[in-house]
Amino acid sequence: MHKVVKAELFKLKRNKAYWFILLLSFGIYLALGLMTDEKISFQDAIASSASIVPLFSALVAISVAQADYNDGTMKNVVSAGISRTSIYIGKLLAAYIGCMGIFLIEAIMSVGFSVYGGATVTMDAFFIIKAVLLQAVVVLNYTVIFFLLGSIIHSAALAVSLSFAYYLFGAFAFGYVGSFLHISGLADYELGSVATAIEQVNVNTVTMLHLGIVTIIILFFAYIGAFCFNRQEIK
């Protein structure tokens, strides 16, 4: 699997489109930071970092998933003696690393603007570690699903559209669905509510349940993706 990760990161490094996406996300956060007068605390800066990351993550994950199909080079990868499951998970990990690059830019920009705005930087290591881990899990959740969509839907436009639809549903729709179905507390499980989980002082049952549900989603979609890839005829 590590050979696949290495090969995919080699390709990503030489992919101008990826560097353009990184530059674009930097530019957008810079513009947003300069345009807003609202001062946010250091904690809020870290907690809200995963807001626009999923949109760019969709482009990166789908691009990594579809690159070998578009180039016709998937046969080179599959015939190299690496198991198909390892190939799928290796590519997924490489896509995740690429997406985390976007997250890091957003995190650095958010924190930078909050500190520039006069916010007090917390030295609470537990809070910082918890925040980074929860954000990393959220990014992994999106990456797994976007990567799966990119792998099974060979039209990039359709895969990106479905990815955006999932992002909107996962990030915001739970609360509306909960209201409609009269289920209270459903909004707590929106991916957008990860900010609330991070701000909680103690890691409590809600946080662990949130993390558990997200982890199950990640494992489920990773399994589905590997299962489908194992059965594919490679052209």
Binding site: F10, A67, D71
Partner: peptide
């Protein structure tokens, strides 16, 4: 991994150089 092959038309990442394409294969 002990097999080398050509199946139909060889496929490469055309935006990369010949050397880089072989480096990818060597990594795999």
């Amino acid at each position: 991994s002990r097999i080398g092959s050509i199946i139909e038309t060889p496929a490469f990442i055309t935006r990369l150089s010949a050397y880089d394409n072989l480096m990818l294969r060597a990594d795999l």
